[in-house]
Design a protein around this nucleic acid. Structure first.
Lengths: 146, 146
DNA sequence: GTTGATGCTTGAGACCGTCAAGCAACTCGG
DNA sequence: CCGAGTTGCTTGACGGTCTCAAGCATCAAC
């Protein structure tokens, strides 16, 4: 008998569980990145580069000041994982592009997130679909800018 | 017609969704904390103090070096939100305790996480129970130390 | 063209995080 | 009891992350 099974968890319990899983996943990500000599923030920025993105766009994506992006890109560029390209339409803009090496590294980091992958393996296809649908419902509330 | 509805989202999609929600919640937490002059890390530490906790225990909880905890507790103590008490059983140990003001502030921060609360309001009791159960299944995989 | 907005960088300052080193106190074998 | 090893905490050095204010170049609009 599992008398402690919460049939109706409080919002607080759910909130704490989400927070705990979020930080656990972040740790997993950070340690995978560290194995390749990257910080979590650097890896996250690298992960946003599906195509050329202006510095300003990165600041918006990462919800931080533009001057912060300068430093992060500086360090990535020094390692050859990223390039700054002039924008043909607007000479103020610098577009950031991942190099081949950059793309390869971020792909490896994602693949090496062992804890996250093994956690998701605990669910079958159907359960994952249910979880995805529920989380998708949370998104609009969470991403609204206060 | 919603043809794009993923009946069976890939692990990658699910992973990215979890990551997005995790960082959104963290931002929410950080901005609630900032309204009270606290950083997210300070608020997180404060939230762990249900009773007296030794410095070493905090380092373990926060998955960081003990010397890091020293600085964070220093700043919280300077604001009077936390106290260091000697441990009666072991004179090496210093137990950290939240002051009344500290308890009050962390409670307010939690209550003021508007985005998170409104996100959870999008689900009814039954859905929350389902979500909780699914997330609980993810925990063992995620929290295993690699 | 002048005015104003926008994109990026720089510099100062605070916090977060690690590591190495150090001191105090505990523990345990002898 | 006593010395050896361990553990708990702090300090100092150093790098990364973040914000703010200031500055330069460029664009847009009148």
């Amino acid at each position: 008998m599992t008398a402690a099974l919460p049939q109706h968890p409080t919002k607080t319990q759910l909130l704490e569980l989400v927070a705990a899983l979020g930080t656990a996943q972040w740790q997993d990500f950070a340690s995978a990145a560290a194995r390749h000599g990257l910080t979590a923030v650097q890896a996250k920025l690298l992960g946003q580069l599906k195509g050329p993105v202006p510095m300003r766009g990165l600041a918006t994506l990462l919800l931080c000041d533009a001057s912060n992006v300068t430093g992060i890109v500086d360090r990535l560029e020094a390692r050859g994982l990223v390039r700054r390209e002039p924008d043909p339409a607007d000479r103020r803009v610098k577009n950031v592009v991942a190099t081949d090496e950059g793309r390869e590294i971020i792909q490896r980091v994602r693949a090496e997130m062992q804890a996250t992958h093994s956690a998701l393996d605990a669910l079958d296809e159907q359960e994952r679909a249910t979880l995805y649908a529920l989380l998708e419902r949370l998104r609009p509330g969470l991403e609204r800018r206060a």
